[in-house]
Design a protein around this nucleic acid. Structure first.
Lengths: 383, 383
DNA sequence: TTGAAAGCGCTAACAG
DNA sequence: CTGTTAGCGCTTTCAA
């Protein structure tokens, strides 16, 4: 007895075909259709051919949702980011546009703000690659505005596991969601220690060690005493870790921690520009150690406007290893994070947890690399 | 009579909670639970509170798949890319890494290959933003290797609509999939005309006009006669369009088309490097017009190794408007595509089609912008 | 090798 | 305002 009595032998035009339609057309049961798609070798060749033909004729594409529901797993991994830098745009009509060209002299635009999220892009790329390699689809969600929690909750419902970047959602939601599926936290190094929701897995980079090595180069290698730190947002665990590295380097060099002034940025270029401009109104330090690359770019903007040269007048360092740092004038000394690898590692961690739910909580710590470039060069060529 | 008689009043430990569990705990029916989640105002306050409490207590997250199945729509839009540049990596153990730092002198590395897919990254970002703004989740898939079709088919089954970049999958699969859900083709300008699978929507940029304007600048503006074109892959519709623009510009300037030599690249930096190196073994043209920015970077690599200066000895132009072009030495003259906008427009097109399946096929054509920078400067300052 | 039947977890009429 | 009842399209025993 057909479960769908309304379905006769002929597929109703306009409805998307289902297993039933294929089964009808191939004169087999829906079970056989399913087998042809999942375990072809379990079906006699002739039957298989018939089914496949029906699939083609009907334009049948199996419903991933039904599959997921019946199979009790989605085959999807979710990746959640914090807000993009308010990337919002107005509604532009997308009508059959006319095309067109404008020619502009782009020489004097200086270094206009580069696209905001290189960092996430790279993480995403790594995650994407790894997910597909492992046979999972990847769903991305940049939580924007107050709806972040809602969005993440939504994504959680569609995935087998989740990778969430630091500071994307409230701890509350994180805990809630983690009860239902494996959640891996990314780049939230400072919290790997303790106050994390129960036994979440965790992947991060060695912020502190990276910053420590970098600052060691500045104070011990180059012998700089007059350093200013351009900090990140107060609530950033990453920044906190980097500050720890900074202090550790000062201690190791026998310097007074208080000797290093901090100015507050928020990881964004323009904010750092403003902050450093303010600083320069008072004094010009020998070195600006910035919490991230974007900030370093902003710092260089400010220095340039003041007519100060890098590295001759002021050393500048960043953190992240954005590609753009290789092309700035001068190239930017920085600490390179393995961003794509971070994405990869996160997906691996999710998959591992899926495979063995009972395994001990993982806390992977990826190594970083200090890249000495002209903005704060190696010792052998100080200039 | 309960549909799930096995479910008593107590949620079985270890099973992910469902509507039934929540309903039990709140002493309501599953319908009420569903209402609380979807149309809260349709439920009495007291009841609602109880249900919400149960949701929290149980750690309930609704199954997106069940929702999609019952609601006959997924709320997901898929975005499919062609292969990344063989970004494959070996399995590295992701164990509880030890962290670490390496310090390297990065000054002489020259312009090492920058990350490969800036272009897609930007498109992706635009698509992601627009999708969420419209209330859709975004699923990404970079079809790698021969499994591309499989992957796309898989994604198709999970989405309400699909945006597919040119050359990602076979036409056959495209047609097949398009029978089931709306498919928007991206950046496949050359085919907007005719041989597309029936009535697919289409979003692209004005490749031809952009290249024509750029080359007009080179031949008419700067008066260059000796031009070599560094082409893209032979099967790239985008490259084909750009070549059309090139020829149009030559025609307009009254030049012989045959006067412009073509060397074959494939959009990748290293390939262009090799091709141009070969070319330079024979002769040094006054201008190298490259099919895309990556190729232009490769061309500049080759020129640099030969000790040739840009723009003094050779003009170089790219196409795409990658951010990195603003930071190269010299900055790269190029045609900027609105990449993020391309992603946005694609998602808008999918949503539009979903909203009105009967609408006439859309073929949006986004405007481009010629950015004259030092590698091939404006006329008023030739050097 | 194939078919019948029982769900997967949720939404959406339709009653009450 | 709330409960009952069909499915949504597929996978998966269990039999035949």
């Amino acid at each position: 007895m057909a479960r769908h009595p309304s379905r006769g032998e002929t597929a109703v035009e306009g409805r998307t075909p289902t297993v039933y339609d294929v089964a009808d057309r191939a004169s087999v049961s829906i079970a056989t259709v399913s087998r042809v798609l999942r375990t072809p070798e379990a079906v006699r060749e002739a039957t298989r051919e018939r089914v496949l033909a029906a699939v083609r004729d009907l334009g049948y594409v199996p419903s991933g949702n039904a599959r997921a529901l019946a199979g009790r797993k989605t085959g999807v991994i979710g990746l959640c980011f914090p807000d993009h830098d308010a990337l919002e745009e107005e509604d532009r009509p997308a009508g059959a546009g006319a095309g067109g060209v404008r020619v502009v002299d782009d020489r004097r635009r200086g270094a206009a703000p580069s696209s905001p999220n290189l960092y996430f892009d790279e993480v995403l790329r790594g995650a994407e690659a790894e997910a597909w390699r492992r046979g999972f689809a990847l769903m991305v969600a940049a939580g924007r505005g107050p709806a972040r929690d809602v969005v993440v909750n939504d994504v959680a419902g569609r995935c087998d596991g989740l990778a969430v970047l630091a500071r994307t959602v409230s701890d509350e939601l994180l805990t809630h969601v983690a009860r239902r599926l494996p959640v891996v936290l990314l780049a939230d190094a400072a919290r790997a220690g303790g106050d994390l929701p129960d036994g979440l897995d965790h992947v991060s980079v060695d912020n502190a060690a990276g910053m420590q090595a970098l600052v060691a180069h500045v104070v011990s290698g180059l012998g700089v005493r007059d350093v200013v730190y351009v900090a990140g947002p107060a609530d950033s665990p990453d920044d906190a870790e980097r500050q720890r590295g900074l202090l550790a380097a000062l201690d190791a060099a026998g310097l007074d921690r208080a000797a290093v002034e901090h100015v507050r940025g928020d990881f964004r270029r323009d904010a750092a520009d403003v902050a450093v401009t303010g600083l320069l109104g008072r004094r010009v330090p020998r070195a600006l150690v910035c919490a991230n690359d974007q900030s370093a770019l902003g710092a260089m903007d400010a220095l340039r406007r003041r007519g100060l040269r890098v590295p001759d007048d002021v050393y500048v360092t960043g953190f992240d290893g954005l590609d753009v740092g290789r092309f700035t004038q001068p190239p930017l000394t920085t600490v390179a994070q393995p961003m794509a690898e971070l994405g990869r590692a996160a997906v691996r961690a999710v998959v591992a947890r899926l495979t063995d739910p009972a395994a001990a909580p993982l806390s992977a710590r990826l190594p970083v690399e200090v890249l000495l470039r002209e903005s704060c060069p190696p010792v052998d060529t100080p200039m």
